[in-house]
């Protein structure tokens, strides 16, 4: 465990010595802020119209939850765009800089290396996710959203980060080239996102399998305020699967 933490600390040390985190967190916050602002404006207009026409518009009215859901969905989307850029260097850079020779000649297990990398990336992701807290805080100040729904949404975001980070680490084990690793991770993430979107309304068995494999449906439940262990299990096994494949990739020696 001490060695695993040493790897994590080293990763964070290297990461925060580069300008990447400061720039990317800034841009990430800016985009989320802009989107929330746009949604909020729309939400306020719709709400005013509802007040003017009473129930005449039909439907049960637009609640603050719809606003939150829409925002969280967009946070999901931008996390998906950000994570490949953070994970792409994790293994690929070690190989390109030949520091992998150090990691594989010291008494370290591959699982410790991967665990350390995963942990450090999750720590960074928590920072990103925590940064979005201004959205629910704002809502709590001006309205009364359901606390459990907000909390579950955050569980969902953390699960998402876990899934995409492990997928990104796997892509980084495939090549020495960081850019390629990033693009690969991006393609993978987008695919797992789109599978769900494209197959949402189909009842065909193949479509349903893809829909189940996709992250979209599972995370949607969290955003709706539905917490089920099944969805948590999905994300945990998703991460384990990619980390396991990464482990096998690194254990094999063809690349050394």
């Amino acid at each position: 465990m001490r060695k695993l933490l040493a790897i994590s600390r080293k990763e964070l040390n290297v990461f925060f010595h580069s300008p990447i985190p400061y720039i990317s967190i800034g841009i990430f916050g800016l985009i989320i802020g802009y989107i929330f602002n746009a949604f909020l404006a729309k939400y306020l207009i719709v709400q005013r119209q509802q007040m003017m026409f009473g129930g005449a518009m039909g439907g049960g009215g637009l609640s603050i939850h719809v606003l939150l859901q829409a925002t969280f969905q967009n946070i999901h989307f931008f996390l998906m765009l950000t994570i490949p850029f953070l994970t792409m260097r994790s293994i690929a850079e070690e190989r390109a800089n030949q520091t992998a020779a150090l990691l594989f000649t010291v008494p370290l297990r591959v699982s410790q290396i991967l665990g350390g990398k995963f942990l450090s990336l999750m720590a960074v992701m928590l920072l990103y996710i925590a940064y979005t807290a201004f959205v629910p805080i704002f809502c709590f100040v001006y309205s009364t959203p359901d606390l459990s729904m907000v909390l579950y949404s955050y569980v969902g975001l953390i699960c998402l980060a876990m899934a995409y980070v492990s997928l990104g680490i796997f892509c980084s084990t495939l090549t020495k080239n960081q850019m390629l690793a990033g693009v690969l991770a991006f393609v993978f993430c987008i695919s797992f996102f789109l599978f769900g979107v494209l197959t949402r309304d189909s009842t065909h068995i193949v479509a349903q399998v893809f829909n189940y494999l996709s992250v979209t449906g599972h995370v949607q439940n969290f955003f709706k305020g539905v917490f089920s262990l099944k969805d948590v299990m999905y994300f945990v096994s998703f991460s384990f699967f990619w980390l396991f494949l990464s482990h096998q990739m690194l254990e094999g020696q063809g690349w050394r």
């Binding site: 080293k10 040390n13 010595h17 580069s18 800089n97 030949q98 992998a100 020779a101 150090l102 000649t105």
Partner: peptide
């Protein structure tokens, strides 16, 4: 190793 395994950052 031939190339010292250093983290430049």
């Amino acid at each position: 190793p031939e190339t010292p395994p250093l983290y430049l950052d």
